[in-house]
């Protein structure tokens, strides 16, 4: 019954949903990008509310900074194209998309609330008890970084290492794909040789 906690949740959730809708529906792609930053920061706020300080910081560093920069790079590199007309596709699939997402929402809502009954209870079917105050307090004073680090280097060390390989492969793949074709690279030099 923590009023302030509830107020914070609803405020952040409201901002998050509005920002996410903005990503989809704002007419200019740059506005969408800014809206996306807002959404990512709101998600970080949600993570803070969920006692996940490390994840919240990582969220801001990776999403709100890294991925946003990637997106803005994409916008800049393709910027010549007129943006106004590229808003929403008026195709049959748009109608379907509204239907599908609405129906999906209803279905999941029905599921997570156990047929709308669980909204009346304190918690969902997954956990009937709130986290104990002591643990929350230790988490809030010590942070989750230690626990996550311990987990990453003991239990999840193999996925962690594989993840590093994945990132390496992604970097290489991105370089290979984004680089210009070899012909385009060679042609200037051959031109140079021809000029000589």
């Amino acid at each position: 019954m923590d009023i302030i906690y509830n107020l914070f949740f609803y405020a952040i959730a409201f901002v998050l949903v509005i920002a996410a809708l903005g990503v989809v529906f704002l007419p200019r792609i740059v506005y969408s990008a800014v809206s996306m930053i807002l959404a990512f920061i709101s998600v970080a706020g949600i993570f803070v509310l969920l006692n996940a300080d490390f994840v919240a910081i990582a969220q801001i560093i990776i999403y709100a900074v890294g991925i946003t920069i990637v997106m803005i790079f994409a916008i800049m590199l393709t910027g010549r194209v007129s943006e106004k007309k590229l808003w929403i596709a008026f195709a049959p699939r748009t109608l379907f998309a509204f239907g599908i997402s609405g129906a999906f929402f209803v279905a999941v809502l029905f599921a997570v609330t156990n047929g709308f009954k669980l909204l009346l209870r304190e918690s969902s079917i997954f956990s009937t008890t709130l986290p104990s105050i002591e643990i929350i307090e230790t988490l809030q004073t010590e942070g989750t970084t230690g626990i996550i680090g311990k987990a990453l280097f003991t239990k999840y060390v193999l996925p962690f290492e594989i993840l590093s390989l994945l990132l390496l492969a992604a970097i290489l793949g991105a370089v290979v794909m984004a680089k210009k074709d070899r012909d385009n690279l060679i042609n200037p030099t051959t031109k140079l040789i021809e000029e000589d």
């Binding site: 998309a97 129906a103 599921a111």
Partner: peptide
């Protein structure tokens, strides 16, 4: 040829499965 149409079908299938499992489970 539009990838988004394929995504529509994919999520349509997901929705369908969600319905099926929700109803079956609850």
């Amino acid at each position: 040829g539009n990838v988004q149409t394929y995504a529509t079908i994919l999520f349509g299938g997901l929705m369908f499965l969600t319905f099926v499992f929700t109803i079956y489970w609850l």
